[in-house]
Design a protein around this nucleic acid. Structure first.
Lengths: 396, 396
DNA sequence: AATACTTGATTCCAGAGTGGAATTATGTTT
DNA sequence: AAACATAATTCCACTCTGGAATCAAGTATT
């Protein structure tokens, strides 16, 4: 089979549809090249050769069909003033493919449209009238159309993420927040949208986004901890997002942290959800003060010296440090990315978190690098877009 | 370069020295083939082809030079009564290479000699008169000679393991039990023995042995927890033993398990060492009963209904369950191998351990497979032999 | 301005590794 | 004894690869 020819067919000028990535016709190393160019931005062949452990000759050969087909583009010659022939950087065309990412919660759909590097171009939210699959499908279709119009682009793929277990075939095995069991969301959406759709667990999607477009660009091993309505946990080891049959069950969500903490709904005293989740923190402070308090108010109250709020947040911060210590000790990673709206806790109580983390680590151990992601809810939708991007790039 | 020829040279009949594995002259896939035959025992080309995702044609080609050189051998035709040509299984010669493994503790050297599959042929112990590197080197030399004579073989490699941090170049960076810092043990031993020597952290060596010759033959991901003088912890993900700069620090050794537990020497209340280590358990019971009690007596006392002993062991068993739950939740593995002399605790209190483990896991999660390794101290020395085997097989 | 120099990128070619198809080997079944 | 089934080998075309020579496009030197 001639790879070059089969790609070039897609460039038929009579075909006005957007260029569609069809990497199943690409060999392993060509795929890896495309992935690296996507992830490492504009990059020279020399650096790619080092990174891929290939010769520059191979890079010329591998790059040729990708450039011919338009999957990659070459920048202009950049003369940096030094002696020698200037480099011509390889890049991905960022105006050829766009992706819609949607995070499904029990109450709403949060959506973004991104370019191929998961850069957000537009965002939108839609309340979910009911938790039926039909409502979700209709909502995603509406958001998709709306966002395409907003950004003036045509989506080439859609990623959907939600809290729950998602099977590799895109069937939602179990999603407690939606009361779903075995909903074939991917095929439903694909039929409706006529586009490739990927469905993934929300935390896993966030980890995937982080792996390609965040911390993973620099380190091969890291954990992700999200704090929000619940506590999420994900892991990347040796550049691979760990996915198991239990992914989506939220095994990091009820990790014991404080024997004197409050109870979670499952009856775990002082588990990560009880100590860290936003609802639990707000409820504790509300109960103490005898009036409803939201998360922002909680942080403000603590900053203003309110004792109840300060005590709750102090305990939460300490618990977060303990959780980070436990995760790094047992997984042996030394980078942790924090995500979710609850990262505001880290910003407010960084010293407490780090003190608890240090206490839980061997004094001789390498320091843990804690990276704070965006607290913006759009990060979740961006994660969904990232898995759509990854799926279209066909890297496993 | 002609691989076949370069291997065949080693078979020069005039050369009476034992066949030495020199796999640096082997290509990647030939190495993987040799490793699979070593690990999977006598195995057919067809099964190897499936395992390696190659054609049987490739297996014939890859196997040829290995068979010619004697690195692999063919079994007789085995006719199992079914129709068709019988298979001729590939195997490693188990009478061509032997390995000495030595575990160094603060008090003694525990040594074994094994065949290439890490099967123990003989064992020996030598008290360590002092903790100097010279004493360790001399002791290992003596044990090596003694074991070779005992088993009637000549060692082709020596593996040494100890509690502490070992750098990849075989320098012991830090070994608290020996009061060592930056001791170039590998080169010292290599000079003395005239044999290839590998030095590795003790828990990592045990994990490596388990990966090639134990649980790892069936699952790609598992954790190892050892209970003995301390608590050890190691991890294999995607068929790779995780080694980091912190390996050897014992990051799983002071994991918080019981807020009401006793203190360890570092001042951690209810950490894994305080709850599980043999010295701590014996000390707790001794203190309660007002007389010295060893581990065997502790188990007997508890079995006989002694309340203090039973309480301590019950708490230990519960803690072990909690530790297993924490490790599996955070690493996402679902197989745990228990090792060390303390596994007797699991045998005695299995129900308690499993109850605590189950309580710490999501009810919907896949059940954790707990495998109990040998409690024999020779397992540690066998681990050391295993890393020597791996080093000679040059697989990373 | 012409030439030398430096470094990026390409071309060309030989070698290694691979799988499919045909063939051979070695047993059981008829 | 012939037919059949399955294992293993041989043969060959194909892909992927890197090294060496070459070309390309800038800066430095004269």
């Amino acid at each position: 089979m001639n790879t070059v020819a089969s790609i070039s067919n897609q460039l038929d000028p009579n075909q006005l549809a957007p260029i569609r990535v069809q990497p199943e016709t690409l060999a392993e190393s060509a795929l890896e090249l495309a992935r690296l160019v996507l992830v490492r931005g504009p990059i020279s062949r020399g650096e790619l050769a080092r990174e891929m452990k290939l010769s520059v000759a191979s890079l010329t050969r591998l790059g040729k069909p990708l450039l011919d087909s338009g999957l990659l583009v070459e920048g202009p010659l950049v003369a940096d003033g030094t002696v020698g022939r200037p480099v011509r950087l390889l890049d991905v065309p960022t105006d050829a493919a766009w992706f819609v990412g949607v995070k499904v919660t029990g109450e709403s759909l949060q959506a973004v449209v991104t370019d191929i590097r998961a850069t957000i171009l537009a965002e939108a939210v839609l309340p979910l009238p009911e938790k039926s699959a039909a409502a979700v499908v209709a909502g995603i279709a509406q958001l998709s159309t709306q966002l395409e119009a907003q950004a003036g682009v045509t989506a080439t793929g859609v990623g959907v993420s939600l809290g729950g277990q998602v099977r590799p075939d895109g069937v939602v095995h179990r999603a407690p927040f939606l009361d779903w069991k075995n909903v074939p969301l991917q095929s439903l959406l694909q039929d409706r949208l006529g586009l490739p759709v990927v469905v993934e667990n929300d935390v896993t999607a966030l980890v995937a986004a982080e792996q390609w477009f965040g911390a993973g660009r620099e380190v091969p091993d890291f954990a992700v901890i999200t704090v929000g309505a619940g506590v999420g946990y994900g892991l990347t080891i040796r550049n691979h997002v760990i996915r198991t049959v239990d992914t989506g069950l939220g095994l990091g969500g009820h990790f014991p942290l404080d024997p004197n903490g409050p109870l979670c709904a499952e009856g775990h005293r002082g588990c990560s959800t009880a100590m860290l989740s936003i609802p639990s923190i707000c409820l504790q402070i509300s109960a103490a003060l005898g009036r409803p308090v939201d998360y922002g108010q909680a942080l403000d109250l603590a900053a203003d010296g309110n004792r109840a709020a300060a005590a709750v947040l102090e305990a939460a911060a300490k618990s977060l440090g303990i959780l980070i210590a436990a995760a790094t000790n047992l997984t042996m990673v030394n980078t942790v990315v924090l995500g979710g709206e609850g990262v505001a806790l880290f910003a407010a109580k960084e010293a407490t978190v780090l003190a608890a983390l240090t206490a839980g680590r061997d004094p001789e151990a390498a320091p843990v690098k804690v990276r704070v992601g965006s607290a913006d809810f759009t990060e979740w939708a961006r994660g969904a877009a990232a898995v759509a991007i990854q799926a279209q790039a066909f890297i496993h």
